[in-house]
Design a protein around this nucleic acid. Structure first.
Lengths: 113, 113
DNA sequence: GTAATCAGTATCACAGAGTATACCAATAAA
DNA sequence: TTTATTGGTATACTCTGTGATACTGATTAC
């Protein structure tokens, strides 16, 4: 039990390391929803700056969370797509969306929980 | 679909707002695992400082995530316990622990994914 | 001719998240 | 007697995540 707790914590922290930060999950969610172009992703996440999106996408590409493809048409077309690895966050994201919905319901109901 | 995406994002961001930060989830997990005393929680999360734990617990108390009880024995005994509300993060935490475990397996297997 | 879109990059700046270290008074254990 | 534990607070510091703003060069639209 003692040992198990430490193993759990480590697993939790590993995950947090990969999907931590304010924008990581919203971006993953956006590209998993089919947004591919830079500006498209940007527009789908109100409040994010180009700087942050650029930085996060670069990080995520390095960590094999997204695939960046350059189509050499003219003008150049660039697409971001989630890797399979990236899609493994599906469960986590869905449960977080669920939680957020429930939370909002409770707030609106004026629950004092 | 467009509308839906925005609602999803909002729900996701609401959740992130509540459980964001480096220590929030590890703390929730710790008290949900039965750790009650300040030093006990502290010891269960190697690397956290008393200052951060103190700050987070205070925040979480204000936000009804933990209940702080003072037992007026001598010496004074203080206990932190998760509220029902806090336990609603169970699903999220479990799926994050799962992910972390799988991730580590893959790393150890030397997978290049 | 002007404006808009595309995929970003470049600077600068800042709050606040997080760290490090020391300390407190009371009690209990060695 | 000295040390350790408890539940924190105080102070000072670092640092980086995030924000704001401006700009690029090529292309297309009005």
């Amino acid at each position: 039990m003692e040992r198990n707790q430490q193993e759990e914590l480590r697993a939790l922290q590993d995950t947090l390391y990969v999907i931590g930060g304010k924008w990581r999950l919203p971006i993953i969610n956006s590209i998993c929803n089919g947004n591919k172009r830079f500006r498209e992703i940007e527009r789908s996440i109100p409040g994010i700056t180009t700087r942050m999106l650029s930085k996060e996408l670069k990080d995520m590409e390095m960590n094999k969370l997204v695939k960046r493809t350059v189509y050499d048409d003219t003008p150049v077309l660039i697409e971001y797509e989630p890797t399979e690895y990236c899609r493994t966050f599906g469960t986590i994201i869905l449960s977080m969306i669920d939680w957020g919905r429930e939370h909002r319901k409770k707030i609106i109901e004026g629950d004092t929980f």
